[in-house]
Computed example of a mutant assay.
Amino acid sequence: MTAVAAYAAPAAKAPLERTTIARRPVGPHDVLIEIKYSGICHSDIHQVKEEWGESLFPMVPGHEIAGVVTAVGDQVTKHKVGDRVGVGCFVDSCGECDNCKAGMEQFCLTGATATYPVDPNGDHMYGGYSTHIVVTENFALKIPEGVALDVAAPLLCAGITLYSPLKRWGAGPGKKVAVVGLGGLGHMGVKIAAALGAEVTVLSQSLRKQEDGLRLGAEAFYATSDPATFEELAGSFDLIVSTVSANFDLNAILGLVKTGGVFVNVGAPADPLPVHLFSLIDGNKTLAGSMIGGIAETQEMLDFCAEHGLGADIELIDADRINEAYDRVLAGDVRYRFVIDAATI
């Protein structure tokens, strides 16, 4: 075991503080990654605050990791020392179940191993707010030279979370796509949908971020707080992807979907949302959900972003500002992703 520096929450709801953690030795199929950058996802805050159920502490969050390989096991074939790599929301799966064989390792039927905070056996896992991490070679993604490591880090969660549903439900030329919410997830949805060739509209609570939305690639921007929006845009969109974690009027949003269109939810509101089934029946509409993507699809997303010059809009911070960044995320005061400079850990 090797001791490395990290930032951890010592207990639920406690501020994060600098500490040291143990990383396992590099096994035959492992790679050791020197972490350069780690994104701050809103789910990190949920986990630290123990809002998704009981967990293990101390907790080192972080599943948007970008770095460089510094050592490889003697049977590693996919990576070499010096490679630019990323690690996302999970670091292992069984590889044998139907979902794993179909490239959906995130839905491993025996339980994918999350980057943090626990594995399927209930053992401690430490995330990316640290200087180094050891992972199995199959779960380290290649980051192409066409995207810088700092803006690539959020792609490992925010990027794939939006790329997967946009690709699956056919965002592209001739399709009208709406992205609900312009935050860490939503801003990547606008960029990716526009790069795919779709006509993109942002639906946000207010027009406060309108200039940003148009800069990122949207052709239109509407406020959901304005009742006229729902009259003007009724039945307009082939695909709507909602990224918001706050409660919203799902039936009103479904009214904006075209006949035969799709509404996909990737956000995670805390409370159940009521749905009037006639909102779906009237128009043969589909209500769907999506969660990240498998390893192959995540690599496809990284290659796509590099090809199109896409990265997250970030604010780079030193590690001693993590707690401040958490407060600002909760206040909606970030455009659009905080990324930790791991050199400051």
Score class of each variant (00 low, 15 high):
residue 1 M to C: 03
residue 5 A to W: 02
residue 6 A to I: 08
residue 6 A to Y: 02
residue 8 A to T: 06
residue 9 A to R: 05
residue 11 A to Q: 12
residue 22 A to F: 00
residue 23 R to C: 03
residue 24 R to D: 13
residue 26 V to E: 05
residue 30 D to G: 07
residue 32 L to E: 11
residue 33 I to H: 02
residue 34 E to R: 15
residue 36 K to T: 00
residue 36 K to A: 13
residue 37 Y to E: 05
residue 42 H to P: 04
residue 43 S to C: 02
residue 44 D to G: 04
residue 49 K to N: 14
residue 50 E to S: 14
residue 51 E to T: 05
residue 55 S to I: 03
residue 60 V to D: 10
residue 60 V to N: 08
residue 66 A to S: 15
residue 68 V to E: 12
residue 68 V to W: 03
residue 75 Q to H: 12
residue 76 V to K: 09
residue 77 T to K: 14
residue 80 K to Q: 15
residue 97 C to L: 03
residue 98 D to E: 14
residue 101 K to F: 03
residue 101 K to W: 01
residue 102 A to N: 14
residue 103 G to W: 07
residue 104 M to T: 00
residue 105 E to G: 13
residue 106 Q to N: 14
residue 107 F to A: 15
residue 108 C to R: 12
residue 110 T to K: 12
residue 113 T to Y: 06
residue 115 T to M: 08
residue 120 P to Q: 10
residue 121 N to I: 00
residue 121 N to L: 10
residue 122 G to W: 01
residue 123 D to E: 14
residue 126 Y to N: 14
residue 126 Y to E: 15
residue 128 G to I: 10
residue 128 G to K: 04
residue 129 Y to T: 10
residue 132 H to I: 01
residue 133 I to W: 02
residue 135 V to T: 08
residue 136 T to P: 00
residue 141 L to S: 09
residue 142 K to Y: 01
residue 145 E to P: 00
residue 145 E to A: 04
residue 147 V to T: 12
residue 149 L to W: 04
residue 153 A to T: 12
residue 153 A to P: 05
residue 157 C to H: 09
residue 160 I to N: 12
residue 162 L to F: 02
residue 164 S to H: 11
residue 166 L to N: 14
residue 168 R to N: 13
residue 175 K to W: 00
residue 176 K to Y: 03
residue 178 A to L: 11
residue 182 L to F: 13
residue 185 L to T: 09
residue 185 L to K: 07
residue 185 L to P: 06
residue 189 G to H: 11
residue 190 V to S: 13
residue 193 A to F: 05
residue 195 A to M: 09
residue 197 G to Y: 01
residue 197 G to K: 10
residue 200 V to S: 04
residue 202 V to E: 10
residue 203 L to G: 08
residue 204 S to D: 15
residue 221 F to W: 10
residue 224 T to H: 06
residue 228 A to T: 13
residue 229 T to F: 03
residue 230 F to K: 12
residue 232 E to A: 14
residue 235 G to N: 08
residue 235 G to Y: 03
residue 236 S to P: 00
residue 236 S to W: 00
residue 241 V to T: 08
residue 242 S to H: 04
residue 243 T to R: 04
residue 243 T to K: 11
residue 244 V to K: 07
residue 244 V to A: 10
residue 246 A to S: 15
residue 253 I to M: 15
residue 255 G to M: 06
residue 258 K to V: 00
residue 260 G to L: 02
residue 267 G to A: 12
residue 268 A to W: 01
residue 271 D to T: 12
residue 274 P to F: 11
residue 277 L to C: 05
residue 277 L to G: 04
residue 283 G to I: 06
residue 284 N to D: 14
residue 284 N to P: 00
residue 288 A to L: 06
residue 290 S to A: 15
residue 290 S to V: 12
residue 296 A to N: 09
residue 299 Q to K: 06
residue 299 Q to G: 05
residue 306 A to M: 05
residue 308 H to L: 10
residue 310 L to M: 13
residue 311 G to W: 06
residue 316 L to H: 00
residue 317 I to W: 05
residue 318 D to E: 15
residue 319 A to L: 04
residue 319 A to C: 02
residue 320 D to K: 10
residue 321 R to C: 05
residue 325 A to S: 07
residue 328 R to K: 14
residue 332 G to S: 06
residue 333 D to W: 01
residue 335 R to M: 07
